[in-house]
Amino acid sequence: MQGFLTALDLTDTGARTDEDIFTGPSQWMPLGRVFGGQVLAQSLVAAMRTVPDDRHVHSMHGYFLRPGDVNHPITFSVERIHDGRSFSTRRTQCYQNGVPILSMIASFQDSDEGLEHHIEMPADVPDPESLPTAQESLKHIDHGVARFWSTERPFDMRHVPSPIYLKVDGEHTSRQAVWMKTFLPMPDDPDLHRAALAYASDYSIMEPILRRHGVAWSSPGLKVASLDHAMWWHRFGRVDEWLLYVQDSPSAQGGRGLATGSIFSREGVLLATVAQEGMLRVPIVLE
């Protein structure tokens, strides 16, 4: 958990004429590639450092350009594109070894009033306390990735109806849900919670595509990579309290799949919406 907070605590290396520069560490991952959610969250933190304290992120759109290397830090270059009466826009370019690995643009807004509604959270979802933890699901697997998913991620993830780490039980459907929260309490900074929510939003968003086709994460030869990621924050919520991430996949084709997600508080309030397209390569014909 401390490594997670350290990764989001960027170092300000100073402003240049046309950009603000920050650096941040890469968290260790068992396959050597930087977790996409980490660089998304860090790019948001960098952008947040350049806007007034009373303006908060409401949307971001990012493209993953290259895989990041966990053995190297990341440099974040923030361009102050626009500051209006109510909105600010920032572009963050993320670099390793002089080449970009992520390009992200985010919009920030003052607090405002207006029309309000949101979709309802599914009513038939079991409570998170009744579901197995990742550690309980993977405790018999002696493998580096399984150990990492079990004990080293900062978020507690509990799947509905069941995880797809090793196999896909039940109906092969393009819909699933995941209860999630940090294992330990977080600082009260609301922007840190928004960035952490972006971090967690990348964990399982591709799983509805895999579940639809009966493909588990452990399937031999499976290759999955995030291509882009969009997120909209509607209302504030704490990531150290249980959140329900309801996910669906409307389409998969051409070696790519699209998935969407809605993140609710435990009380049923819609906090955020997510969309991601990813590359999925499976070396067997499934259907």
Rank of each mutant, 00 (worst) to 15 (best):
E129T: 08
R85F: 00
E79D: 09
G36L: 03
G24S: 04
A134Y: 07
E241V: 06
R194A: 10
K139R: 12
V224K: 11
L166P: 06
Y63P: 05
G3P: 07
S162Q: 07
F108W: 08
V168F: 06
K167E: 13
F148E: 04
G36V: 03
S77G: 12
A177E: 00
A195E: 11
D188S: 07
S251Q: 14
D20Q: 12
V51H: 00
E287L: 09
R158F: 04
Y199R: 00
L244A: 00
R16L: 12
T6H: 14
D202E: 07
R33F: 13
P67G: 01
V145S: 11
D188L: 04
R235Q: 13
D127K: 12
T50R: 06
I263Q: 04
D191N: 12
L138H: 10
Y245G: 02
S130G: 06
D248A: 00
F155E: 10
G68Q: 04
V224H: 04
E152R: 03
F64E: 02
S43N: 05
A134R: 14
P250S: 06
T6A: 14
F183G: 12
P73I: 10
I263P: 06
A7P: 01
D202R: 03
W242P: 02
A177L: 03
T13D: 15
A196Q: 02
N97L: 04
A7K: 07
G3K: 14
R91M: 06
L197W: 03
G214H: 05
G214K: 08
L243K: 02
H58Q: 12
T273C: 08
Y95V: 05
H82Y: 12
G14I: 08
G32Y: 15
L280P: 01
R153D: 00
F22C: 10
M48Y: 05
R55D: 01
R256L: 02
D248G: 00
G98D: 00
L138Q: 07
V39M: 02
A123P: 05
